[in-house]
């Protein structure tokens, strides 16, 4: 490393720390303060250490709503991503392996799904029609519908790297179509699946807009909705508000630490080919 690279690095680190890290430090510091201190919104160190206090208070707020929100968000994220992975892999596999005139239509639908924003009110109308409005099931299926195009595209590209000989060997070994898919193809798609799970879990967990439309009401709140609602409730209690932000920030941070490589792969693969 040259001296120049070292100096640039030090300078960049200093600037990046101010621009990119300061807001996070601010979140953490404010979350540890008492409510009087926090309302000043300044950057001083807390006079007293209230991290645990604030944590308990946020949990207890509105009759343990945050816990319910975490439960709901977890259910939605896990189910939606699982269905997205399975349906996406099946469509991507078929799209790559079997050429037919339907393929063009499916590709067109994938592009439409990636670009076009959902028509929200008509979607509410459809959800009401099939009895899924304001339900967790409905929210799960909505997330699947919105995330599926990306999943299909990603799997199609990965299936292309698996030689078709493997399918044929399995067919000769007596595998039925579902067995070829589940015993041979799906295990080989594991890298794509891990990336997809990580990237889409974060996206679904962080989604605010769609739960806002399709999941109104107290019993089905998600983490992002709770945070948004706390914003007005805790106007005078910034310490609790920021404790909430801190709690919302931690899950992606943990995922990021463990799956950095997969996230980077997923974000750029989807992007460069999209």
């Amino acid at each position: 490393m040259t001296r120049r690279q070292l100096m640039t690095g030090l300078l960049a680190t200093a600037i990046a720390s101010i621009i990119f890290l300061l807001p996070f430090i601010f979140i953490f510091v404010t979350a540890t303060k008492s409510s009087q201190e926090a309302s000043l919104l300044n950057f001083s160190l807390p006079g007293g250490w209230h991290l645990w206090d604030n944590f308990i208070k946020v949990l207890q707020a509105r009759n343990y709503m945050l816990l319910l929100a975490y439960l709901n968000s977890t259910i939605i994220t896990v189910c939606a991503v699982a269905i997205m992975v399975l349906c996406g892999a099946m469509i991507g596999y078929l799209l790559q392996r079997r050429s037919s005139r339907w393929n063009k239509i499916i590709y067109a639908m994938v592009m439409v799904g990636l670009i076009v924003p959902p028509a929200v009110v008509p979607t509410i109308w459809v959800l009401q029609g099939i009895g899924l409005f304001k339900t967790i099931h409905g929210m799960i299926l909505i997330q699947v519908a919105y995330g599926l195009p990306f999943s299909v595209l990603m799997y199609r590209n990965f299936v292309a790297a698996i030689p078709q000989d493997l399918d044929e060997a399995a067919i000769i070994d007596g595998a039925k179509p579902l067995q070829v898919f589940f015993k041979v193809i799906l295990p080989l798609l594991k890298p794509a699946t891990v990336t997809l799970i990580v990237v889409k879990s974060i996206a679904v967990f962080n989604d605010f807009t769609h739960p806002l439309y399709y999941l109104p009401g107290r019993e089905n709140v998600t983490v992002q909705l709770t945070l948004y609602n706390f914003q007005s409730q805790f106007e005078t209690q910034y310490n609790l508000l920021f404790m909430n932000i801190l709690l919302v920030t931690i899950p992606p941070l943990i995922v990021f630490i463990f799956f950095n490589r997969q996230i980077v792969a997923g974000m750029t693969a989807g992007a460069v080919k999209g």
Binding site: I83, L86, C87, G88, M90, I91, Y93, L94, R97, R98, W102, I106, M109, V112, G113, V116, P118, A119, V120, P122, T123, W125, V126, L127, I130, L141, I142, V144, A145, Y146, L148, P149, V152, D167, I171, P177, V180, F181
Partner: peptide, 24 residues
């Protein structure tokens, strides 16, 4: 070995919850 119904579950969800509202 590649039956069309593999597309079905995803296609139904996408059509009902994304495509139909968009057209509507």
């Amino acid at each position: 070995a590649y039956p069309y119904w593999f597309v079905l579950p995803g296609a139904v969800i996408f059509t009902v919850l994304f495509l139909a509202p968009t057209v509507a």
